[in-house]
């Protein structure tokens, strides 16, 4: 039976309207509702289903981030994860934390926890990097099954259906492996109130990147963050002549 590690990220809730800070250094996060990255929810759900089918022995949820990252670990625990690991990265360090750092942390923890499967969401809805799964696979030298829309467990082997451009690709890969979850892998369950209460008793280990020997010094600097361009309003013209005139004016004909 596999020991499964799932990565969960705390992001601004999908339903919140994102506002860019006036000084263009980032987006407003203070007093904004946060929740677990929806793709990570799918990853957690998949791991929990594996455990329910007795294919996984233990599930460990990992989150890198400030103190509040524990909230999403709690959500994962309420969904059925066994224990959590919170890697505390806060302040300026968190602002420049990149998938490369997270993947190194995940790789180290995998070795430490002797996990033989990693499931993460394919991307986070805040930075849309889509790199963590791939880089983690590289750091561990494990096979990767990204954008999974179906996972079938075999003995020492998994069959994964991947969503690729214009169709589905089915691959087989040996365990241990890194899997990234696509949108249609499953429908995540809702963390019920009694389960949230029970989750409070489950253990969360706290550590820092330093404890794991991972260097989280920034590799990039954010130059500026800007709103996407606003679509210009259209106009309704009275007749064809006016339309032709407008098009000529714009140099289209």
């Amino acid at each position: 039976m596999a020991r499964v590690l799932v990565g969960v990220k705390r992001v601004i809730d999908y339903a919140v309207k994102i506002r860019v800070k006036p000084d263009k250094t980032g987006v407003v996060t203070d007093g904004v509702k946060h929740s677990m990255n929806p793709f990570d929810e799918i990853a957690v759900e998949e791991a929990v289903r594996m455990k329910e089918k007795k294919l996984a022995s233990e599930i460990i949820a990992v989150s890198c981030g400030p103190t509040q990252a524990q909230d999403v670990i709690r959500t994962a625990l309420a969904m059925g994860v066994d224990k959590g690991i919170h890697v505390e990265v806060s302040g300026a360090e968190y602002e420049t934390l990149q998938p490369i750092h997270v993947s190194k942390i995940l790789a180290k923890l995998t070795e430490k926890e002797k996990a033989d499967m990693i499931i993460v969401g394919k991307q986070a809805i805040d930075d849309d990097s889509n790199q963590t799964a791939q880089m983690t696979a590289a750091a561990l030298d494990w096979p990767q099954a990204t954008f999974a829309s179906k996972i079938e467990n075999g003995d020492k082997e998994i069959t994964v259906t991947r969503e690729v451009d214009g169709g589905l690709e089915t691959i087989k890969c040996k365990l241990p492996a890194v899997i990234s979850a696509d949108l249609r892998l499953n429908e995540p369950r809702y963390a019920t109130l009694p389960n949230i209460m029970k989750a409070k008793k489950k253990p969360i280990t706290k550590m820092t990147p330093k404890d794991l020997g991972v260097d989280v010094s920034p590799r990039i600097t954010v130059v500026s963050v800007e709103d996407p361009p606003v679509r210009q309003a259209g106009a309704i013209l009275p007749d064809v002549d006016a339309l032709v005139g407008k098009l000529k004016e714009g140099g289209h004909i």
Binding site: Y14, A15, P38, I125, E163, D182, L183, R184, E187, P188, R189, Y190
Partner: peptide, 19 residues
């Protein structure tokens, strides 16, 4: 309600990422 939330999230993501 649980189904409503799930669908809302699924549809928003589908639309946002054109999946």
């Amino acid at each position: 309600l649980e189904t409503l939330y799930m669908l809302k999230k699924y549809r928003t993501l589908k639309r946002r990422y054109d999946l």
